[in-house]
Design a protein around this nucleic acid. Structure first.
Length: 199
DNA sequence: CCGCGGATCTTCT
DNA sequence: GAAGATCCGCGGA
């Protein structure tokens, strides 16, 4: 790990993810997403997430039971779940809950911190800085994350989450975006006052 | 600024 | 074969 990445605080340990999905989701707001490869560090503060529950949540990919795609949602926590949406975009999730129980947190928006020039290169159509990462597929593009990072270890791999400054973020709670089933559940958590939310 | 529809492909029925 | 946890460009106001 580079000295620069250390400035974001320690990497969150696997136990962080081995809790109830909603608890992890709330705790993730304000943390720092880091993608490091070939010496290039891309980082951003997490400002928006959504929880997808393993049980009683028909909007979750795990709702249909184990399939080849979703098997690791039921496995050990602290791994990435990346999938392709609408044929051309990628979404990044973090596997939660103890081994054997499904549950994940969808990352929806971050505030750019480090490697912003690289983000502009990977998202040349963005107009303002907030357009770089203010959506689940925008931020994966800006961070260079795709299926190659699926099943990656968030504790020891190139995609990690660091603890951040430690100040407890003020949260707003709302309904999840872009889903039909169980759309009324209050499972979207956003950093109050952030200018980098998806909508 | 807003609403509409096209793009494009993985996954499961 | 159809749907989908989205983004972007276009047209109109």
């Amino acid at each position: 790990m580079s000295a620069r990445a250390d400035a974001f605080g320690p990497v969150l340990p696997r136990e962080f993810y081995a809790r109830k999905t909603v608890r992890v989701a709330r705790d993730l707001v304000g943390r720092v997403l880091v993608h490091e490869r070939e010496g290039e560090v891309t980082a951003g503060r997490i400002v928006e997430v959504e929880a997808y529950l393993g049980q009683g949540d028909r909007a979750a990919h795990s709702a249909a039971g184990r399939t080849p795609r979703t098997a690791h949602l039921f496995g050990e926590p602290g791994y990435a779940y990346v999938y392709v949406i609408y044929g051309m975009h990628h979404c990044l999730n973090f596997v939660c809950e103890p081994d054997g129980t499904a549950g994940c947190v969808l990352l929806r928006a971050v505030e750019p911190m480090t490697g912003v020039a690289g983000m502009w290169e990977r998202r040349p159509k963005a107009r303002r800085e907030k357009d770089l990462t203010s959506g689940p597929a925008k931020l994966t593009a800006a961070f260079g994350i795709d299926l190659g990072q699926n099943k990656g270890d968030l504790v020891s791999g190139p995609v990690r989450i660091h603890a951040g400054a430690g100040k407890r973020a003020r949260l707003d709670v709302s309904e999840r975006i872009g889903i039909r089933e169980d759309a009324e559940l209050p499972l979207r958590f956003t950093m109050r006052g952030s200018q980098f939310l998806s909508r």
